[in-house]
Simulated scan of single mutants.
Amino acid sequence: MIDWDFAVSLGSRIAGEGPTVTRAEADDAVAELRAGAGRSTGLVREFTGLDAPDGTAPILVVDRPGWVQANAEGFEVATRPMIEKLVASKPPSGLSLRVGSKITGAEVGGLLGFLAGKVLGQFDPFHAPHGRLLLVAPNIVHVERELDVDPTDFRLWVCLHEETHRVQFTAVPWMRDHLFSEIRAISDAVEPTTFVDGGLERLTEAIRSGRKGGSLVEMFSTPEQREILDRVTGMMSLLEGHADVVMDDVGPSVIPSVDQIRRRFTQRRQGVGTLDRLLRRLLGLEAKMAQYRDGAKFVRSVVDKVGMEEFNAVWAAPEHLPSKAELSDPNGWVTRVLG
């Protein structure tokens, strides 16, 4: 139902190559990012108490097309249960299959192309067997130039955040399988006719009204799916907020200009144009920004109250993850989990 090769080709063309750099500058950036990711492992372990086994998830420094390719592979794994359900409901064939797969491939490619120019780094949990860490070198170079910050400091700052995600998924053995089970639960809750019927009208209305929170995810979700999405929101907010706390609290000891970097980076997040804001809203990226803020506030509140060692009970089992409601009620989480 999706022409993945076409999606990768289109997405790579839309993404472009990024900023102009010399061969020496590119080599220096790649080497520094690899070294920063390796250095971050020990820093994350010392600060959080999470010990990830060595050699479980590789660290890759990629360009924009490389990020598109990796995420197309991840999307294919993540969407497989839903696509199988849709195909079983109404098997496509012949011309409709060929045309439809190109259309959906174009949609996925457009999404990947848009995101490929913005993502600095990402842990890819879908890569077998344990995931992999992706650092997007041209985007990191572009942002460090745009912010006019020290490149070495900025690269280590980004590595601290992304390496924290790698540690989260490799030091907590159930995390990856739990994420997959939630994705399968969303797919199981999909009603094919509801998913297809009325989709264009809802998308058009969302673009026209520009209503806050009108993301594609929310438009195509049933009450049962929204309940699952709330659980996933709690989990992802924890992971993002925890990584933000690590990068900002470890930063001052190893990154001299961390305060300047954080201030300018936060200002940059707010300074987007109208079209960019609309696309972020439709793709749910505004919610992504809220995850950083709400998750970091939750982590800091709990750690300030009970300390990091007690906070780490959050990693003991899936039922210890905060709910979406508990993100704004950390005391409620402490009472429920720690007693």
Rank of each mutant, 00 (worst) to 15 (best):
F6Y: 15
T204Y: 09
P173Q: 00
V217H: 06
L279I: 02
E144G: 03
L203C: 02
L203M: 08
D248M: 12
A325R: 15
V8N: 07
D63S: 14
P192F: 01
V87W: 06
T48A: 03
H161M: 04
I59H: 11
N312V: 01
G105I: 04
T104L: 14
G11N: 04
N139E: 03
L156T: 05
L327H: 11
K85H: 10
K305I: 00
V306F: 08
L147T: 05
P330Q: 05
Q168G: 04
L278H: 01
G284N: 05
P125T: 05
G74M: 08
I140R: 14
I255F: 01
D230P: 08
T335A: 09
Q260L: 12
E319T: 08
D276E: 15
L60W: 09
D259H: 06
K90G: 00
W67V: 06
A26Y: 15
V108L: 15
V196W: 05
P173E: 00
H161V: 04
G49S: 08
G339K: 14
V149N: 05
S181F: 03
V143W: 04
R231I: 04
A37C: 07
E162S: 06
V77Y: 00
R264S: 08
I103Q: 08
M82K: 14
V77F: 00
T20D: 12
H127L: 11
P81Y: 10
W174G: 02
V68A: 13
L120K: 09
G210S: 07
A137W: 15
D248L: 07
I14G: 07
R208G: 11
L10F: 11
P81Q: 12
D230G: 13
H165P: 00
V44M: 07
V68C: 10
D148W: 05
P81V: 07
R262Q: 06
F220H: 08
T170A: 01
R277W: 05
R39M: 12
S181Y: 03
V302C: 12
G18E: 12
Q291D: 14
P125L: 13
L115M: 13
E310W: 13
T335C: 00
V143P: 08
K102L: 14
G100Y: 12
L120C: 08
G36A: 15
F114D: 07
T104V: 03
G199C: 09
K297M: 07
G199K: 13
P81E: 09
R202T: 12
M247Y: 02
A116M: 06
M308I: 13
P91S: 11
A189W: 01
P330N: 12
D153E: 04
F265H: 12
I186M: 05
L239C: 08
D54Q: 02
A290M: 02
L338N: 10
G214A: 14
A313C: 07
